[in-house]
């Protein structure tokens, strides 16, 4: 372990740092800097010590917030509920307490109706040491999320953390009203290692980082329509896109579900036989598909907006 560590990420931060990297920031730092200064109020904060009751069975250290921060604050003056996962604690995985906090927040949002919810995903999926509780937590969150959307709540997911958004986290993301993703924000159900372990390295070489990024990374998800917006990796740009998506996100009901069925069906028709993300991007009409992975965020956003308008009515 290096003595230098990566200390920038945990600098106690009080002042706004707009250019700070979302990827490098801790969950607390993201929450504090995303919301209006001083507006965040946490529910069941770390001083309550509501830790996982299961990690000690495995002789594993606990974290006082169990890797999930929930609370309320203001975004550009308007009230917002917020939930953030800490991707470095247990890979941001869903355990019993971790998940239940988000469930409770979404149930409250459903009751209140008028306050949007921001979910800052950073997760490898279910926490295996409490797998059954974690799996069920994800199912409960999805139900609470859809019930909240039915009541008119906008639920916006922000994805750009170290752990990405894998496993059940990917399914919850798929339930949100709208998603913003940065290049680092991978979204997928099975992770690269899981596919390789189960199907062999010929199916998926998890060490081929370029393959991982172009199959699961933010740029592909934006071009495919899996995310509504692509953003650069700064806290300021995540804040801007969150505000935009809260305003533009759709309601929820039969029309949205039918539109999503059509959207996904069309995707299968068009890209079913594509062997690689590059083939999909070419079929989408991206002028210089090979250049996409190295393209700076601003240039990519321009290309993506030209190729595929976000479908706000079909998620």
């Amino acid at each position: 372990m290096s003595a230098l560590l990566t200390e920038t990420e945990d600098k106690p931060q009080t002042a706004w740092d707009d250019a700070a990297s979302w990827y490098e920031a801790s969950a607390r730092q993201r929450v504090r800097s995303l919301l209006d200064a001083g507006s965040f109020k946490e529910f069941i904060g770390p001083e309550q010590r509501e830790v996982s009751p299961h990690l000690r069975v495995f002789e594993l250290p606990e974290q006082f917030d169990d890797g999930m921060i929930v609370g309320r604050g203001r975004l550009s003056g308007e009230p917002a509920f917020i939930a953030a996962q800490e991707g470095r604690f247990m890979g941001g995985a869903f355990g019993e307490v971790h998940g239940a906090k988000l469930t409770g927040l979404l149930r409250a949002a459903r009751y209140v109706k008028s306050i949007p919810v921001l979910i800052l995903f950073d997760t490898g999926g279910v926490r295996l040491q409490e797998a059954n509780a974690g799996e069920l937590a994800i199912a409960e969150i999805m139900r609470a999320l859809i019930e909240a959307r039915m009541a008119g709540v906008k639920v916006v997911g922000l994805i750009g953390g170290r752990a990405g958004c894998y496993g059940g986290g990917g399914l919850i993301a798929g339930c949100c009203s709208a998603l913003a993703v940065s290049e680092q924000g991978r979204i997928s159900v099975s992770g690269p290692e899981v596919i390789e372990t189960n199907r062999g390295v010929e199916e998926f070489d998890s060490k081929d980082r370029a393959l991982v990024w172009r199959t699961m990374g933010g740029k592909h998800r934006r071009l495919l329509g899996g995310a509504d917006a692509f953003t650069s990796d700064t806290i300021q740009s995540f804040r801007d896109i969150a505000l935009h998506l809260i305003r533009s996100a759709p309601g929820f009901g039969m029309d949205v579900l039918k539109a999503e069925q059509a959207r996904l069906g069309e995707r299968l028709e068009r890209f079913s036989s594509c062997a690689d993300a590059l083939d999909i991007w070419k079929a989408e009409g991206v002028p210089d598909a090979e250049a996409v992975p190295a393209m700076p965020a601003e240039d990519f956003i321009a290309v993506a907006n030209k190729v595929r308008e976000p479908r706000y009515d079909a998620r």
């Binding site: 979204i187 159900v189 099975s190 596919i195 199907r199 199959t215 495919l224 329509g225 999503e260 996904l264």
Partner: peptide, 12 residues
């Protein structure tokens, strides 16, 4: 668990 399913957005 396959490359194709994840490529096409299985989570959605």
């Amino acid at each position: 668990m396959s490359k194709r399913d994840e490529l096409l957005g299985l989570n959605e």
